[in-house]
């Protein structure tokens, strides 16, 4: 018969199905472990672990996920190429998370260092409206707002069109909610 290829590799005896059939004991042990770990996360959530609680919860979740992937999804016994696809995805998720978080966390420091934020503000103020820019530090945002207030009260009307980035929206929303609540 014609040569048979599986995932790019020529295969001998391709008609044989080599599926691994796990014994019942494996499935029972895995579901038992999953229940125990769920109970553990649940119990831990009542204890006050502070910032460590996120780490603990994530570690437990990763163990649970690994059990499901390895035994229920048969990745432990499956074609290694499927494991490659799966782990490759996880790596890309890691890059996605890592770079975004790094950017958001280091943005303030960079703005301070290069005075990007201030320059941007000046540039915008030279034009028509008032730019508050994107600033995630409430104290500094308040300071900038006060500065702008002091420089020219007449600009109040230009607030809407100068809605630059998240900073202003956040303050607006906050104020709105405070107002609505009281």
């Amino acid at each position: 018969m014609a040569k048979v290829f599986l995932n790019g590799q020529p295969v001998e005896h391709a008609h044989e199905v080599h599926e691994h059939i796990s014994p019942m004991s494996t499935y029972n042990a895995v579901i038992g472990a999953l229940f125990v770990l769920t109970g553990l996360t649940f119990a831990v959530s009542f204890a006050d672990l502070g910032p460590a609680s996120l780490t603990v919860a994530m570690v437990v979740a990763f163990i649970k996920a690994s059990l499901v992937v390895a035994y229920f999804m048969h990745l432990k016994y499956d074609d290694k190429y499927h494991l490659f696809v799966f782990l490759g995805t996880i790596i890309f998720v890691g890059i996605f998370f890592g770079f975004t978080m790094f950017d958001l966390k280091s943005r303030d420091a960079l703005n301070d260092e290069q005075e990007t934020f201030v320059r941007w503000k000046e540039m915008e103020n030279a034009g028509k409206g008032l730019a508050v820019g994107v600033d995630n530090v409430p104290e500094r945002r308040a300071k900038v707002l006060a500065e702008i207030e002091a420089h020219g009260g007449g600009h109040g009307g230009g607030h809407g069109e100068a809605g630059h980035g998240g900073g202003e929206h956040k303050t607006d929303a906050k104020a709105e909610h405070k107002a609505a609540a009281h």
């Binding site: 995932n7 391709a14 044989e16 080599h18 074609d79 499927h82 995805t89």
Partner: peptide
């Protein structure tokens, strides 16, 4: 497909690729 094994492997690889997009 030439064999059932090949057909199964193709289907499963496709499924794993789909799951990858789901995770993303």
């Amino acid at each position: 497909f030439d064999t059932m094994g090949q057909q199964t492997a193709a289907a499963k690889l496709g499924m794993w690729l789909f799951l990858a997009t789901e995770i993303l």
